[in-house]
Amino acid sequence: MNAVFCTIFIVSAAVLAFAAPQDFLTSLLSGARTSLNTALTLFCVYAVWMGLAAVAEECGITKKAAKALRPLCFKIFKSKNEEACSAAAMNLTCDLLGAGASTPFAVKAIGEFEKEGNAYAQKLLFIINCAGFQLIPSTVIALRAEMGSAAAADIFLPSLVCSFATLAVSVTLYILTEKISSKKCRKNNGNKRKEFAAHLKDKERKTAGNGKGAAWRS
């Protein structure tokens, strides 16, 4: 973001300095004012949803949902690590409910997967998170209501369909490419085996284990 910010800022400022130097300060100030307005709107939105999320958390709804998702996590992440899967389940639940506090769980789950050497699970979790799957797009609905929409919730259905489709596409793509690359990896290792003699066998087995171990562990 830093690079983008610098580039856009400097280039625009340079253009503006030639074209209309008097507009420079006014646009900065009006930008700051808009940001304050936006922050106010956002506070209203987040106050409602984070309040609800806190109540849900306290009475154990979030945890219960996470428990229901845990067996699924063992399966899709091909992991046997209890801690990692509960963290991943919590992460996915928070994502689903739009509770917002999902990142710490994801970081924890990824750290736990690291202990297992399970790169497959790490990347899968990342991809699932990036698809931004949500049952209820709470922030957006509230934002629209705040901005005077007559039917703020009518994006519910398109959002659901859209994010589900995205999730399906990205997970399928990932699993497919993972299969292709691990096949390649195996092939390469086969070639290596012919080229190198027995003294490299040990080392080679290690790399093969690192490269495809995660994908083949099931």
Binding site: V11, S12, V15, A39, L42, A47, W49
Partner: peptide, 28 residues
């Protein structure tokens, strides 16, 4: 926590909005 979150967001928002305004005003 929503209040704290918004407050933590505000500096970034301000910076980004200023950048947006400049970006727009310059015609780029």
């Amino acid at each position: 926590s929503a209040f704290k979150f918004t407050l933590s967001l505000l500096p970034c928002l301000a910076a980004v909005f200023m950048m947006c305004e400049l970006f727009e005003a310059s015609g780029l």
